[in-house]
Design a protein around this nucleic acid. Structure first.
Length: 195
DNA sequence: TGTATGATCGCCT
DNA sequence: GGCGATCATACAG
């Protein structure tokens, strides 16, 4: 293509940018794993200077992918049970990422229903743990590139005339007032409403 | 409609 | 030994 294609850019998003910038830009993009997924409707930004972030206290074996190259996955186990999916931002060594919190399911509905053991489409991917289960995410996805199979990030065709909501992040106890949660206005597939 | 609790893993104190 | 970037279920009101 004629437009410049930076190594850190996928589907027009520059993942070397700040995580809150990337988190906002990801709303409305389509995310697929092995062709299964949907439109991103909710994200949260995290950064190494952010007490709520896994990267705040420096690299550990678990969070190593957050300190790796951008535009890759950081997958972690939440509460010993759920697999949660992040997209790494900034330059290697920085420790920033975007948690994908909810999708509007569009592709592979039957497979996601089977994985979730659930018929209710509204709840298939409404939350980071639910989304991970619906997409079949596990530890083996940690560090994978976002721009190559089995992953795909696809920009919506213009016009992008939807509104993006902002609010405090969910489920954290530190830096609770940082408005780093982003959501697609009016979407019924959010993990929780914005106030 | 809200509040409590169990499941269960990795890291920190 | 405690505490999460969670969720499903069980109860009370």
């Amino acid at each position: 293509m004629l437009l410049p294609n930076f190594p850190n850019s996928v589907a027009g998003i520059d993942f070397s940018a700040a995580s809150d910038t990337v988190a906002r830009q990801l709303i409305g993009m389509r995310l697929l794993v092995h062709g299964v997924g949907g439109v991103i409707v909710e994200t949260e930004a995290y950064d190494h200077e952010d007490p709520a972030s896994h990267s705040f206290s420096g690299p550990t074996p678990r969070n190593a992918a957050m300190f790796g190259p951008p535009a890759r996955l950081y997958v972690y186990r939440s509460y010993g049970i759920h697999w949660c999916l992040n997209l790494v931002c900034r330059e290697p060594g920085h420790g920033a990422g975007v948690l994908i919190r909810a999708l509007a399911p569009t592709e592979g509905l039957e497979l996601m229903r089977a994985r979730r053991g659930l018929d209710n489409v509204r709840l298939l991917c409404a939350g980071p743990g639910r989304l991970g289960q619906a997409l079949g995410i596990d530890r083996s996805f940690n560090g994978l590139r976002l721009d190559a199979p089995p992953l795909a990030l696809i920009a919506p065709g213009p016009p992008r005339d939807f509104a993006v909501l902002t609010g405090p992040r969910i489920g954290i106890s530190k830096a609770v007032d940082r408005p780093w949660r982003f959501g697609l206005a009016g979407s019924p597939f959010l993990s929780r409403p914005f106030r």
